[in-house]
């Protein structure tokens, strides 16, 4: 058997039958895909959602391959997981970490309605599929005989050539649209330093530079709030992003705790040295 024929054989196998291997693969990966989808929906942070979605998409790519759609499987990985999801991550980065929203619902009854609708829709969809009496099962052996990519190409450039050209136009339009949407023309001249200062005075905002964070040079200390004269920490001293992430460290308590721990440690060491000396 030449390598090509073996490929054809596996192709036909994949197309005609569902082997036990495929069944195992389906149940295992399918479960993972569902979990990934659920995580996409329920993860609190957008980055996590994006990662879960990427995982689900890779599993879907595997399923495409298992279904004899080799080209699509590869495209799925390259285009979706590789390009689109990265685009998502870029945007998440642009929009910022603060965009992590709470899962608390604000519209009254929205969640319950959504779940109810989702449940009903799913049940109906499943019922519809079960009802469809899909017993005929041709397999892709015939269609993929000349190679999956070649077959797709033949269809794409003959039967679907107009649609193909239109999608090209669509992509061009989309990219131009995206540029138009995100590009911002400066319609007025930039404000000078002086004007900005005057604006701050007008608006009655914080005039002098913000106070520096507390400097306890024990680690990367920008997340430690500076202490006010009465000993309470001032949130103003900490970077806004850290503040919104809730990553301010309460120095006052920590310092005391540290001191206490230090005293304990020193006391313990003194004890040890004393007892050592005593034993000597």
């Amino acid at each position: 058997m030449t390598p090509t024929t073996s490929v054809e054989a596996t192709t036909q196998l994949a197309a005609y039958t569902t082997s036990t291997g495929e069944a195992v693969q389906f149940w295992v990966l399918g479960t993972v895909a569902v979990i990934g989808a659920l995580c996409t929906v329920f993860m609190k942070k957008a980055v996590h959602s994006a990662l879960c979605l990427a995982g689900t998409m890779i599993i879907l790519a595997v399923f495409y391959l298992a279904n004899g759609a080799y080209f699509l499987g590869v495209v799925q990985i390259v285009v979706y997981t590789g390009a689109i999801m990265m685009l998502f991550l870029f945007v998440v980065m642009l929009v910022g970490v603060t965009a992590a929203d709470s899962l608390k619902e604000t519209i009254k009854g929205q969640r319950w309605l959504a779940l109810l609708c989702g449940l009903g829709f799913g049940i109906l969809l499943v019922a519809g599929i079960g009802n469809a009496s899909l017993t005929e099962f041709s397999g892709l052996g015939q269609a993929n005989a000349g190679g999956n990519v070649e077959g797709l190409a033949q269809l794409l450039f003959t039967k679907y050539v107009f649609a193909f050209e239109l999608t090209g136009a669509l992509l061009i339009t989309a990219s131009v649209g995206a540029m138009v949407l995100t590009h911002r023309e400066r319609t007025e001249r930039a404000k000078t330093q002086r004007e900005l200062a005057e604006q701050r005075v007008r608006e009655g905002k914080h005039l002098p530079p913000l106070p520096a964070p507390g400097v306890y040079a024990r680690h990367n200390a920008v997340d430690i709030a500076g202490l006010l004269p009465d000993g309470t920490p001032s949130e103003l001293t900490v970077n806004r992003t850290l503040r919104e992430r809730g990553q301010i460290r309460d120095v006052s308590a920590e310092a005391l705790n540290d001191l206490k721990a230090l005293e304990q440690r020193s006391a313990a060491r003194l004890e040890r040295t004393r007892s050592g000396e005593a034993s000597k």
Binding site: I107, A114, C117, F121, L124
Partner: peptide, 18 residues
């Protein structure tokens, strides 16, 4: 809220399938 409208659309789709 766009999401509220989406719910009604989704519910409508469910009714349509039914």
């Amino acid at each position: 809220y766009a999401r509220s409208y989406a719910v009604s659309m989704f519910g409508g789709a469910a009714v349509l399938i039914a």
